[in-house]
Simulated assay, not measured.
Amino acid sequence: QRRDGDASSSHTIFVVRRQGPSDVLVQTSEMTMHAYNRYGGNSLYFGQPVGRSFKVSYNRPFGEGDGVDNDFFNAEYPLVRFLERNGYDVAYCGGIDVHRDASVLQGRKIFVSSGHDEYVTGAQRTNVTAARDAGTHLIFMTGNEYFWRVRTAPSIDGASTPDRTIVCYKETLDGAKTDPSSEWT
């Protein structure tokens, strides 16, 4: 839905993964998009009636955010247009792809964290750090990158699809241990 409330113009964002090597790998910031997404009334920032949620699902459309431009068309779309228009050898992935499989980073000269990429899993950060240590150059396009550590959980829709729920308790905001897991977020 467009920001002006006109529901006649909706978009579906998906990543087409390219097989094989490329010089540049651009990672979308979909974890952050889901964290700020208030579709259904809840996000990792806001929630009704009791406050922010600790878990948000990939299995929902993008709805109202918090007023910050955390969507694909704010920063990522112009980057994609620039790279494609100027003939860069580029491939794309989601943050969840880097979380699941370090091999998506192999053979790349440059890794670009695009958009407002604020949320990261432990495995995702480990994989990007290993790529850096192996000689891949890193570009982070905005501030507050890789700020909140999250973990993933299966979907709750009955299919239990892995990695479809983002979990983040933001214990530093509470000043206390609130996450029932031993893994901090």
Rank of each mutant, 00 (worst) to 15 (best):
residue 42 N to I: 00
residue 43 S to L: 09
residue 45 Y to V: 08
residue 45 Y to C: 01
residue 48 Q to K: 13
residue 48 Q to F: 14
residue 49 P to E: 09
residue 52 R to I: 06
residue 53 S to N: 10
residue 56 V to R: 12
residue 56 V to Y: 10
residue 56 V to T: 13
residue 57 S to R: 13
residue 57 S to W: 13
residue 58 Y to G: 02
residue 59 N to Y: 04
residue 60 R to M: 10
residue 63 G to K: 14
residue 64 E to A: 14
residue 64 E to D: 13
residue 64 E to I: 14
residue 65 G to E: 09
residue 67 G to L: 08
residue 67 G to N: 10
residue 68 V to H: 05
residue 68 V to A: 01
residue 68 V to W: 07
residue 68 V to D: 13
residue 69 D to Q: 10
residue 71 D to M: 01
residue 74 N to F: 01
residue 74 N to D: 07
residue 76 E to K: 05
residue 78 P to K: 07
residue 79 L to V: 08
residue 79 L to Q: 12
residue 81 R to N: 04
residue 82 F to C: 06
residue 83 L to S: 04
residue 83 L to V: 05
residue 83 L to I: 05
residue 83 L to N: 03
residue 85 R to M: 04
residue 85 R to N: 10
residue 86 N to A: 00
residue 86 N to R: 04
residue 88 Y to E: 10
residue 89 D to E: 04
residue 89 D to I: 00
residue 89 D to S: 00
residue 90 V to Y: 05
residue 90 V to R: 02
residue 91 A to E: 02
residue 92 Y to W: 13
residue 93 C to T: 08
residue 94 G to L: 07
residue 95 G to L: 07
residue 95 G to F: 09
residue 96 I to P: 00
residue 97 D to P: 01
residue 100 R to G: 03
residue 100 R to N: 15
residue 101 D to F: 01
residue 102 A to L: 07
residue 102 A to K: 14
residue 104 V to K: 02
residue 104 V to A: 01
residue 105 L to E: 12
residue 105 L to H: 11
residue 105 L to T: 05
residue 106 Q to H: 07
residue 106 Q to F: 00
residue 106 Q to G: 03
residue 106 Q to T: 07
residue 107 G to H: 07
residue 108 R to M: 00
residue 109 K to F: 01
residue 109 K to A: 07
residue 111 F to R: 01
residue 111 F to V: 06
residue 112 V to G: 04
residue 114 S to G: 06
residue 115 G to I: 04
residue 116 H to D: 12
residue 116 H to F: 11
residue 116 H to A: 09
residue 117 D to T: 14
residue 118 E to Y: 06
residue 120 V to M: 08
residue 122 G to N: 02
residue 126 T to V: 03
residue 126 T to N: 11
residue 126 T to I: 01
residue 126 T to W: 01
residue 128 V to F: 02
residue 129 T to H: 06
residue 130 A to W: 08
residue 131 A to M: 08
residue 132 R to N: 08
residue 136 T to A: 08
residue 138 L to F: 11
residue 138 L to N: 03
residue 139 I to R: 03
residue 139 I to P: 04
residue 140 F to N: 11
residue 141 M to A: 10
residue 142 T to C: 12
residue 143 G to L: 11
residue 144 N to C: 15
residue 147 F to N: 14
residue 147 F to G: 04
residue 148 W to I: 00
residue 148 W to S: 03
residue 149 R to A: 11
residue 149 R to M: 12
residue 150 V to A: 10
residue 151 R to H: 12
residue 152 T to N: 04
residue 153 A to S: 14
residue 154 P to C: 03
residue 157 D to K: 09
residue 159 A to Q: 15
residue 159 A to K: 15
residue 163 D to I: 00
residue 163 D to F: 02
residue 167 V to M: 03
residue 173 L to N: 11
residue 173 L to D: 14
residue 174 D to L: 05
residue 174 D to G: 04
residue 175 G to P: 09
residue 175 G to S: 06
